[in-house]
Write a protein that binds this DNA or RNA. Structure first.
Lengths: 149, 149
DNA sequence: TAAATTCCTATCAAAAATATAGGAATTATT
DNA sequence: AATAATTCCTATATTTTTGATAGGAATTTA
């Protein structure tokens, strides 16, 4: 049930871009250095983001990446589903499909579906903008101790 | 973000026991056959459940396993945390501790904490009894189409 | 004593995750 | 035109995790 480094690093890249792109592009070398990550590894992650239309890239000197949209238009559910391949907690409910022959009689399936919905519900309420703003009320909700009721 | 086979099989074992133990014990061979799983692999999973006080075992002929408590006393959060090692979606919030030096300045941490809370909230509302009863209202909530409002 | 079982330890194989390497293609600047 | 900085592409290596198997010791019932 762990988010892979791909997902974690991808989010760090998105946050870094939002904070540093200004009106230009940011190079991977800069991001890697700021975030303390391997640039070569980031390349493979950024490739996924790029193909998933999350970023705009510019090749050549002074090139780099920038967000393809305003930060408020990225839901965490979309970002993580892209980098993790899927957010489904079990194989049987990937692709919005029940690909298991025993699905009809499976006592445990409703639990996994419910868990999937709970995860999706949470992650689709949080946007990249919320993360950048450190919006604790939005991200932590009732569990935020420094938020008013 | 996938639940491992350990977690999935462990739940199948618990469900099988609840449905078949009656007032005796159920052997692993029986469970393995009914569930179509390798008995040898189940041994390693049941060992975890046993050490975690989820089961009572009886060795020797006619031995086997049975639930240590009534089904309503097992929360899915407890079961999965035990078999998966932890339910935390990222390393940094395992053990209810922030074991990362950059935690203080990490923009992404609140998201992971919020996700952790959302998962825990859902899984701690569902019990083994709910699973056995196929309580769709409880497990699927608003997403249950066959439940009344 | 025999049969059926849990329990324990070790090992293996396959898959996935994490990371690195080298170089081709592109672009801005000089 | 040349150079430097960059993305892009493909391949490979390394490490870790997952899933599974094997053999036999200990325990209990009949």
């Amino acid at each position: 049930m762990m988010v892979s480094s791909k997902g974690k690093y991808a989010l760090l890249v998105m946050v870094d871009l939002a904070q540093n792109q200004g009106d230009g592009h940011v190079s991977l070398a800069d991001i890697a250095e700021r975030q303390g990550l391997s640039m070569k590894y980031l390349e493979s992650i950024v490739a996924i983001l790029n193909k998933g239309d999350m970023l705009q890239s510019l090749r050549g000197k002074n090139g780099g990446y920038r967000l393809a949209r305003p930060a408020s238009d990225y839901r965490m559910s979309e970002l993580l589903a892209l980098t993790e391949g899927s957010l489904a907690p079990v194989e049987c409910i990937k692709n919005n499909d029940l690909n298991c022959d025993r699905a009809a009689s499976c006592m445990t399936l409703p639990l996994w579906v419910g868990l999937d919905r709970a995860i999706m519900k949470y992650l689709s309420t949080v946007t990249l903008e919320d993360v950048i703003n450190g919006d604790r009320k939005k991200m932590l909700g009732d569990w935020c101790e420094t938020c008013e009721a």
